[in-house]
Design a binder for these strands. Structure first.
Lengths: 328, 328
DNA sequence: CTGTTAGCGCCTTCAG
DNA sequence: CTGAAGGCGCTAACAG
């Protein structure tokens, strides 16, 4: 390993001179700067980032704890984060919480001392837990509003669920079910929006809890939903994955979509347009959400005055064939 | 921040004693050990990992450079890596190369000094480039065989493409096209397997280059493939994404699958079973591949004798409706 | 403008 | 069984 001392010796200057030059923290005579820079080139000197962190206290790294990296929504969020981080010369430490709160806690614990700040996407911890962490490290959550010093990036979940439900009503649906996701902010908002739209139309609500916000979660509920005594004529699923699980089973069971039952998801993952029939959903700007979360975090780390503590990025209705019906 | 000194003072021992105890590097009288441990508890002492790295030279971190985290195949690989890393108390530094070789090089450069070793998944660098890096840091590639000191985890790409093609032939297809991916090991192998099967059956080959190994890549080729003068009656795509792009356009163009043209992908991403018709593909054990890559890397870092320099994890045929036909 | 000198937090010989 | 002291690579006052 080649260190700053080697460079100093090669350039015939002191260590601190080298340090100041490579950090642009002080200017020197061009003669010296040249000598140092060419020594750096020649020896291919790379400052040791850990040593730097020890002495500065900054890591230039962001910790990212993600609910499930195999979920395309979260993969897109990570894409946004890492893109933004890379563009600002920050490094990303990623940890997959595998939907397990205890693991998540451990991961935060190991990540925290290695990074300047954290992004929590799809956290399953309590608001107060998150707020407690945020006291020691800047934190940005995605899809939560934990309050306190915690920054956050969210979508207009309530609104979009309201619109989707209203769309279903408009196409003549009467018995509209909602498949609820994990009991956190996003699902609560979506459910509230769904219920508000039903209330407005004086229609009954019908909420079923997903065992998991995944394809399998949707599949596992499909049988009773489709074959039950009181079959809904429309289903709004917590997310696209669950909706796609429903569609898969519907095909096997010869349940016609949208004739027998309309199905909508939320998220607009890249595969939502590919299933048959293409899935009605809400386009959530996942990559942009990731980017924004990273930007917010880095601004904070930069010591900038934070104008905004939380940012709402709008989702948009995306109507496709899975909810086609006669407009009233 | 609370340091090892604070613990030493609290426990009324020296710093080195604390160090030795928290690292299990030397035993002490149980009285002392108790004092130290409770001091650690009480003060919630967390050793600073960077300081530790500076003095030991080890980071306990793995660098992961991924072709595209939004691609479900690579997301699954990352899942496997991070799962394995977490289980061994290693941290993952993730960087998304966005399919850009120059960016990839930069990312490796910034990651390398911060980690003990690297996993390169879907690298677009040259074999010699990769070998050069591997001289300085242990490297495991996924889907490449760069030779030299580079460890790797791969699938039996040749074989699986051969089997898929033979399957298409068996169901009576005569004009079978292959959509080639990026010109690296995986695509070369798949193409070679495809060609071997055709040769065996004395059928003509028909290779078309994908602009990108994605849904959009498949879509962009679909028009000319389906509407061209010499329409193939079967298409083996480089990966599931491209195949799904084809299916999407086929639906719009009212091209019937598999009646007019059979379509097969490779990868078996979770969405391959959801499109209509469900996609014939090869199940590549992506999570397991990630796990294995991480395991290999950490074994090497552990100083273990490496029994195996590269590991082949078998893919399996996965026949679905998109290639149905009369068996001959 | 440049160099000397302390640290940063931790680990690790080497004495006792 | 325990502690003192030096060093890891780098930064940051403080002098000159």
């Amino acid at each position: 390993m080649i260190t700053i001392k080697d460079v100093a010796r090669e350039a015939e200057v002191s260590v601190s001179t080298v340090s100041k030059i490579i950090n642009n923290t002080k200017r020197f005579s061009s003669a010296v700067e040249m000598r140092v820079k060419s020594a750096v080139e020649k020896l291919e000197f790379k400052p040791n980032p850990h040593a730097r962190s020890v002495s500065t206290g900054k890591t230039h790294s962001l910790g990212v704890v993600i609910l499930d990296i195999a979920n395309p929504y979260y993969a897109a969020v990570v894409k946004g984060i890492s893109h933004e981080a890379e563009s600002k010369n920050h490094t990303v430490l990623l940890a997959d919480a595998e939907e397990r709160p205890n693991l998540e806690r451990d991961l935060i614990k190991t990540l925290a001392p290695r990074v300047d700040g954290l992004v929590l996407a799809g956290s399953r911890l309590s608001d107060s837990d998150i707020r407690a962490w945020a006291v020691k490290k800047p934190i940005v959550t995605v899809g939560r509003l934990p309050g306190g010093e915690v920054m956050s990036v969210i979508s207009n979940e309530y609104d979009i669920a309201f619109q989707l439900t209203r769309h279903l009503i408009t196409t003549g649906r009467k018995r509209i079910a909602f498949l609820a996701g994990p009991a956190f902010w996003v699902s609560e908002q979506r459910q509230a929006g769904y219920e508000a739209a039903l209330l407005e139309a004086d229609l009954p609500k019908m909420v079923v809890q997903l065992p998991s916000p995944s394809i399998e979660g949707g599949e596992s509920l499909a049988g009773t939903l489709f074959m039950g005594a009181h079959r809904p004529d429309a289903i709004l699923a917590y997310n696209d994955l669950a909706a796609m699980g429903l569609i898969k089973v519907a095909r096997d069971l010869s349940v016609r979509i949208p004739e027998d039952v309309a199905i909508a998801g939320i998220g607009d993952i890249p595969f939502a347009a590919l299933v048959s029939p293409p899935l009605t959903t809400a386009t959530v700007p996942s990559v942009e959400i990731g980017r924004t979360a990273a930007r917010l975090l880095m601004q904070k780390l930069d010591g900038q005055m934070m104008l905004e503590l939380s940012i709402v990025l709008p989702a948009k209705l995306c109507i496709r064939a899975s909810t086609k019906g006669e407009e009233k």
